[in-house]
Design a protein around this nucleic acid. Structure first.
Lengths: 236, 236
DNA sequence: ATGTCTTTGTGAACGCGTGCACAAAGATAG
DNA sequence: CTATCTTTGTGCACGCGTTCACAAAGACAT
């Protein structure tokens, strides 16, 4: 699909559905893999399978970005990688700070997926003074007191909180005050933030509990009376 | 959220909506906190605030469980803790195996939220023989070859994959074959599983990319020079 | 008992996301 | 140029989830 000039300048009415945005990274990953294998084009069917969604959904998702496919052929891999990257804002540099360098924080710092997508770890921070200066993933741990200066100096707009639950809200407040407007929270707490600040949370415990629910349901369904429900006792 | 069940009723007529199930752990956490403070009852308004949702949604969620509130008063904290725990299946013991004891696996093993909710780490496993026997979070790392035996001996039905992406599918296959029917996947890959197996994925990279999208949008909305900062045309 | 006040539980309306199914668009062959 | 074949892009219908708004239920005071 040689770049023809029939592409419109994206007349999208200012808004890609949230559900679509959440899937774009998935498509991007699948496309990157194809790109590395030098696959030139891919059909919606193939790409959908690789991304674990159905093809109609994928086509509709792409339709929000514009008409980037060629009927009878499919999508140009390289071109789509570029379009999605741009749409997600990955063509620019995003400095990130990670606060709380325990097991989890260290894991995040070492995670390769960071750098590969325009995310740059600007600093690792911890409240424990004993950690200061120690190298983690090649970066020195800085003391939390430097937070404000680091955020400002590096123009950090994304913060990752990997502290214990008790410290999360305070760290969050300081990040927001310093200028951070997007937060990825790994601490098991609900964070209060002012209007305009985005928070996404990753909560291991919640995921496990959801699995447990379905697991219980599966166990209860087989060989169970028409009543269906599992136990049902009442405490005092 | 990532419940990967494609074609199916998804929610039972007798069942609880998936969206509600995903919020129950949130309520449970807030209720547990109240319980520790010996608060006897709580209104939907208060609890909703603590859990970060709106009160109408909370009441509707609880209505799927039954009528556990008292009009004019609110909900009995202890009773609700019990009901939600039971509904989620947390009143029973869930043995869990963690595969891949790198930075992330170790972080998960050390995570306290595990044990506190009926989840018991039955074993830590890694493909690296050099790790075998090493203590992590008080448990010895076992070699991956023991996977099948461990799953069977401990009646494990939930597996956590914290391996590199390349190893995830193979580990997943082995877990499923051995009898695991719920998987929590931290590896950045789409896992293929047979019907009846639930997979939930936690993907740091995806969360960051979603934040970047919104961050970009925020940056583009304000100021916005005559040149229209954000989007763009294609690279001719 | 009666009235007032608080808070739940839910019917109904609405909006978003999903999946079907097909027409339109382009490639390709004759 | 015409016919055929492939695959996109999308109109439409449907179902899930959210929110509103209020009647019903109970607590509490008099």
């Amino acid at each position: 699909m040689a770049t023809s000039r029939s592409h419109r300048p994206a007349t999208r009415s200012r808004g890609i559905p949230e559900a679509t945005v959440a899937r774009l990274p998935l498509y991007l990953r699948a496309l990157t893999t194809l790109s590395e294998r030098s696959v030139p084009t891919v059909s919606s069917e193939e790409l959908a399978t690789a991304a674990g969604v159905n093809s109609a959904k994928l086509r509709k998702d792409f339709s929000y970005l514009g008409s980037y496919g060629t009927r009878g052929v499919g999508y140009d891999v390289e071109y789509l990688v570029y379009q999605i990257s741009r749409e997600l804002g990955l063509t620019q540099d995003w400095p990130v700070v990670i606060v709380g360098i325990g097991n989890l924080g260290a894991a995040l710092a070492n995670y390769g997926g960071f750098a590969s997508r325009g995310f740059r770890v600007a600093a690792l921070m911890d409240a424990d003074a004993a950690l200061a200066g120690k190298l983690v993933a090649g970066l020195p741990v800085r003391h939390i007191d430097e937070l404000e200066a680091i955020v400002e100096d590096n123009q950090v707009s994304i913060g990752v909180i990997a502290t214990p639950a008790g410290a999360a809200q305070e760290v969050c407040d300081r990040l927001v005050t310093a200028g951070v407007t997007s937060i990825l929270n790994f601490a098991p707490t609900v964070l209060q933030v002012p209007e305009g600040v985005d928070v996404r949370k990753v909560d291991l415990s919640i995921e496990l509990q959801i699995l447990a629910f379905h697991e219980q349901r599966k166990a209860g369904e087989q060989g169970q009376g028409p009543d269906g429900d599992v136990p049902a006792v009442m405490p005092a």
